[in-house]
Simulated scan of single mutants.
Amino acid sequence: MAQPDFPPVGVIIPNFNGVHLLRRNLPSVIRAAAAYPGTCSIIVVDDGSVDGSAEMLRTEFPSVRVVVHEANRGFAEAIHSGVDAADAEFLIFLNSDVRPQEDFMAPLIRHLEKPEVFSVSPLVLDEDGRVSPVSWRCFRIKRGRLRSVRWRFDDLKSAAPTESLFASGGSVALRKSMFVALGGYLPLYKPFYSEDFDLGLRAWKRGWRTLLEPASRVVHEKKGSISENVAADRVRKTRVCNRFLLEWTHMPGKDLMLYLLPGYLFQLIGRLLRLDLVYVRGFFAALRRLPEALRVRAEIRKHQVLDFWRIVDAVERSFGLKA
């Protein structure tokens, strides 16, 4: 029986041609939902699959609600359809290639009951049990680009929760009302990549925190639906393009002018000399969307209460990288 002090939770799983992933990982999600002390519903959004995913779900997992897109719309729109269909305020987004531990939900949801917390990440493990760097995220400017701060799980001073710059969109718990207030994932980053980074930064800039909760754990498979269904060059070009858009949207103007723009120049020259045309195409694809990124940047500033480096400093102090 559900315990009344644990709020209802909705789990949203986007799917595109991932019938084999759903068969493998959905049973673990169902067991976790049953183990959660409150009520929990599971919604799979089938994003235009042609592998029989929706039919398989209705036949083999009748307790799961299925929302169907007749044509593929991309990760963000699949999540948005799931959010629209969910009744719960507290939501968990899981990719179809993520397998949660049975007790992973309650530690995440407890944090969301604090009004200043926007999202919580579980500890993400790979298939060999190693802690993935996507569990905790922080970035600094190095060699002319915004680069991830390297860390080890042993660096954590304790198993206590710590602040993080953003939670991976593949395994995150968050509040529906805040997600909607932020406008969800932005069209700027379609079809995939960097939308979770952007979402976390927009939340932080409003003063809404993201946490890592090491007591909650999931396993993320090495190869997911994007890599299986999209050509490798397109995946890399999109990743490159969206990282530029993210920097132009969120980085302070002084850092863009003094550090990032010179870094772009040197990197482009180096990539051209190496004939890395995918990278170059990614840059120019981003450049074509610069006016859109600047409009988003201006809109974010209207609601901003914390600047980028103040957020980064807070995240590093929480982790224990700064005194």
Rank of each mutant, 00 (worst) to 15 (best):
F179G: 03
P191L: 15
A160G: 11
G169K: 06
L188T: 01
A160F: 01
L174D: 10
A160P: 06
L165K: 06
F179I: 14
K190H: 14
S158L: 14
G183V: 09
S168T: 06
L174M: 15
S158P: 05
L182Q: 13
F192C: 15
K176M: 11
V180H: 01
P191R: 13
K157E: 12
S158Y: 06
S168L: 07
F179E: 02
S164G: 04
G170F: 09
V172S: 07
G169M: 03
D196P: 01
S194G: 10
L174W: 04
G170D: 04
S168R: 00
V180N: 05
F192W: 14
P187I: 13
K176N: 04
L156H: 09
E163Y: 08
L156D: 03
A159S: 11
F166A: 03
L182E: 07
F179Y: 09
S194Q: 13
G169V: 06
G170Q: 10
A173Q: 05
R175T: 01
D196R: 08
S164Y: 00
V172K: 02
F179Q: 13
L182T: 01
V180A: 05
L156Q: 10
L156I: 03
S194I: 11
L182V: 13
D196G: 12
Y185T: 01
T162K: 11
L182F: 09
D196H: 07
K176A: 14
P191Q: 14
S168W: 10
G184P: 00
S158I: 09
S177P: 02
L165N: 00
Y193C: 15
L186G: 01
G170I: 08
A159Q: 11
S171C: 11
G169N: 11
A167E: 10
Y185R: 02
K157T: 14
E163S: 03
G184F: 04
Y189L: 11
A173M: 07
G169E: 01
A167S: 08
V180G: 04
R175G: 08
P187N: 03
T162C: 13
A160M: 12
P187A: 14
F179T: 03
L186H: 07
S158E: 07
L188G: 08
S164N: 02
L186P: 00
M178S: 08
A160K: 03
P161W: 10
L156V: 03
P161E: 13
S177G: 09
L182R: 00
L174T: 05
V180P: 00
A160S: 12
A167W: 01
M178R: 05
F179W: 13
A181G: 03
F179D: 11
D155K: 04
P191D: 12
F166W: 07
L188V: 10
D196K: 10
P161A: 13
R175K: 14
Y193H: 09
D155N: 14
T162P: 04
A160Q: 12
F166R: 04
E195K: 04
G170R: 01
L174Y: 06
K157I: 12
L186Y: 04
Y185I: 01
S158D: 05
K190R: 15
S171V: 04
G183F: 12
E195N: 07
A167R: 00
G184Q: 03
V180E: 13
F192D: 08
Y193W: 15
L165T: 04
G184C: 05
M178Q: 08
V172D: 07
T162A: 11
D155F: 12
L165G: 00
L165D: 02
E195Y: 13
